[in-house]
Amino acid sequence: MQENRFVIKNAPFLRGKEDIKSIMWTVVVALLPTTLWAIYLYRYRALTVILSCIIFTEIFEMIFLKIRGVKNVFEKAFDGSAFITGLLLALNLPSTSPWWMCAVGSFVAMLFGKHIYGGLGNNPFNPALIARVFLLLSFPSIMTRWTTGVNLTAQTFATPLGMLKTQGLSSVSNLDYLKLFFGFPIEGVGGGSIGEISEFAILIGGILLIFRRIIPLIVPLIYISTVFVFTWIFNIIDPTKYASPFFHMVTGGLFLGAFFMATDMVTTPITKKGKIIFAFGCGLITSLIRLFGAYPEGVSFAILIMEAISPTIEKFTKNKKFGE
């Protein structure tokens, strides 16, 4: 008799094709234009930073998975999530970052950003951002050593946002916004973190994620427009003191943050209304820091602050039930 040959599992017996791996690796693919452009501009320096971050992140991921007693360590370590963290961390660092600092960052990201909370899905903050802010506070001088790119001398310069903060509006008034948008190096101007130089490259990846329905359009749209409107208002109030909103669009980590970090599934609200509030908050805090804060750039802080209140936002933005 073959009576008990049947497997008992719960309905539904058909499941969709998208899984964690396909989502994560698609995000990696979406980061490729940005990554390749960084490698083109900063050559071996960018390559060193990117490889160090990814390799160390994967190593620490495996170590902490093992310590936590997770089964199939190898498979879990390559579900793409740690790879993204490593890559995102690298894209948030200057091209001159030494390999050992990448290692420290990877360690912090994996331990204090992820596994201490119970691993994938449980972390309240984006691990790459935790690591970036940790490094910024621990190694402030290394973390602000910006080169122009292509020109591989070690000479460093301030980024446009840094110039604006310390030297005033006149120092950035001649910058070519289109060059900044496409990420072409400008003589005497620091390029910033290796992943934030080309808004255009980020946009290509972002559009891919929106079309693949991995990130919702609404988050980058609201984040970026909030910064635009906010900086525009101040630009209208006093155009001699506040830069044009277009300047804010093409500088700093706004696009990288809006498309690849404010859209992090794990650490942002799960409800649609919550996502909108989250993105708006990010835009507001980013603008406030940029215009009035001590730091020239505020994307990392803005996202981390909003992540801290994300559970509260989620609680107050319950979906409407059908028939309610």
Partner: peptide
């Protein structure tokens, strides 16, 4: 696997 809070179920 653990929930990655992608929100697809919602």
């Amino acid at each position: 696997n653990p929930c990655i809070r992608c929100g697809r179920c919602l």
